[in-house]
């Protein structure tokens, strides 16, 4: 899957923001960024079993002086909603990168309910939303979002729209849905 090279700009913005911890539940849309960060020895990668671990993990890391980023698919937002309360009540900076499903040419109807609800759910919890639709905006959007997260101790999510990622095709097992 082509990612329109947004992951290169995202990686640069991550480094510029001083982020040295990347927690994630993988997604096909995130694969280029995960691979890029995985090759960067300055970034500690933590694979999560559940997105819900993300806000708590990043709050703990930030308590110790380490900035992190949570990357997950839109379905994972449904898993972590209550844990956003930890970030909100403690004003812990929370930077999230969310690859969207269920919105643009989606081939798996099971992805639609949560994907469509993500902006409203995150908004209801007080997360500031950014939308990335063009690869050339990746660095600027990420700089703005990460600056807000760490400079003003906010919860921030960059939604990487499915129009940029491309709708996932149903192909062979191991490369198909969800």
């Amino acid at each position: 899957m082509s990612d329109g090279d947004w992951s290169e700009g995202a990686h640069r913005a991550i480094l510029r923001a001083g982020i040295r911890l990347l927690a994630h539940v993988p997604d096909a849309g995130l694969a280029p960024l995960l691979a890029r960060c995985g090759r960067d020895p300055s970034i500690r990668i933590v694979g999560l079993a559940d997105e819900r671990e993300g806000p708590a993990l990043l709050a703990g890391a930030w308590l110790g002086g380490l900035r992190g980023l949570l990357a997950c698919q839109s379905s994972g937002i449904g898993n972590l909603v209550n844990m956003l309360g930890v970030s909100a009540v403690g004003r812990f900076p929370l930077a999230m990168l969310v690859t969207m499903r269920g919105e643009w040419g989606e081939q798996n109807p099971w992805q639609v309910p949560m994907g469509q609800a993500v902006p409203a759910v995150l908004g209801a919890m007080g997360v500031r939303l950014f939308s990335l639709e063009r690869a050339e905006d990746a660095e600027a959007v990420r700089d703005g979002a990460l600056g807000l997260a760490f400079g003003s101790e906010q919860m921030v999510a960059v939604l990487i729209r499915q129009r940029l990622l491309g709708a996932k095709r149903l192909t062979s097992s191991g490369g198909g849905p969800p």
């Binding site: 671990e53 930030w62 110790g64 002086g65 209550n82």
Partner: peptide
């Protein structure tokens, strides 16, 4: 000491984040 009043299920993950950030402690 840090006490959670919410975020049930998050204490282990929060500890992991802190342990990664402060390997000397």
């Amino acid at each position: 000491h840090f006490h959670l009043w919410g975020g049930m299920g998050g204490a282990f993950a929060m500890g992991l984040g802190l342990a990664i950030a402060r390997p000397e402690r």
